[in-house]
Write a protein that binds this DNA or RNA. Structure first.
Ligand SMILES: [Mn+2]
Ligand SMILES: [Mn+2]
Ligand SMILES: [Zn+2]
Ligand SMILES: [Zn+2]
Lengths: 136, 136
DNA sequence: GTTGCTATGCAATGGTATTGCATTTTTTTA
DNA sequence: TAAAAAAATGCAATACCATTGCATAGCAAC
């Protein structure tokens, strides 16, 4: 049983060929990718199956999703130990030049100081600008 | 010249009946609203005209938009003096119960501590959970 | 009043997300 | 191991939301 199979097992998701391929593809990315991007990474794969794979992964905490405002949700593998709680989550950065969405894993979400009565469950924080690769 | 006409004039947007009506409608909202919501607030108004009105308002800094992850962009009037820079902007809160998106105007965006080389231009910060009205 | 620019209204299009259903694959049970 | 049940996959269809093209109406300058 390899590392990906282990993760699927831990998260109570059945291991299938398709799911392992998707995990493998996601692990190779430097950025968060869209369903469309994922589809493009395969020769012959059904878009809907990939869609449902991502949805399953998201529900089970294997990937996290980012609404970066482009209209297409981006996905990236969670880091080991991530429970996808606001404390676990990190900032995402959308570069207006290269149009890629980066996980800034080391930049955690700062304390938001919400007004009294607001119960926090999730946070989607997308900073936009120019990434370090594009700003030379 | 009333307050709305003043704002339009300041922001170099021509004053029209439609635009004044849209500003009036936006000013009456307690939450940020979608194009669809805006359309529903009128008896007979063309969706596309409303769409372009919102786009114009956004470009000229009269409204700000929020990508709350529901798929439909939300809009709200900017506060006086807002330049829509990351320092001016505030947190938004999407309530999973009432499904409304609130402007938390007093909760400014905290410092993000981006890694070196990342140039910040915009921030979209949406906290999700249960709002104070729904959490009693 | 004529001319020119802008805003509006209607139609059409493009893209992403989502669901229904038949079929295949995997797992469970006998 | 064979049959039955459950889950995953593949294809088709649908639902939205966002965006553009183009003709017309309204306004402003000349
Ligand atoms: Mn991430
Ligand atoms: Mn706001
Ligand atoms: Zn970049
Ligand atoms: Zn609420």
């Amino acid at each position: 049983m390899n590392a990906f199979e282990n993760i699927l097992h831990e998260k109570h998701v059945r291991s299938t060929a398709m799911r392992l391929l998707v995990m493998d593809t996601l692990a190779k990315q430097q950025t968060a990718i869209s369903l469309h991007d994922l589809e493009a990474a395969f020769e012959h794969a059904d878009r809907i199956t990939l869609y449902r794979t991502l949805k399953t992964f998201e529900e089970k905490g294997i990937v996290h999703s980012i609404e970066d405002g482009t209209g297409a949700t981006k996905y990236a593998l969670c880091e080991p130990g991530c429970q996808c709680s606001p404390q676990d989550l990190h900032i995402h950065f959308y570069c207006n030049k290269c149009e890629k969405t980066y996980c800034l894993s080391k930049s955690k979400i700062p304390d938001l100081g919400l007004p009294k009565g607001y119960q926090l469950q999730e946070v989607n924080l997308v900073a936009k600008g120019v990434c370090n690769r594009c700003s030379d």
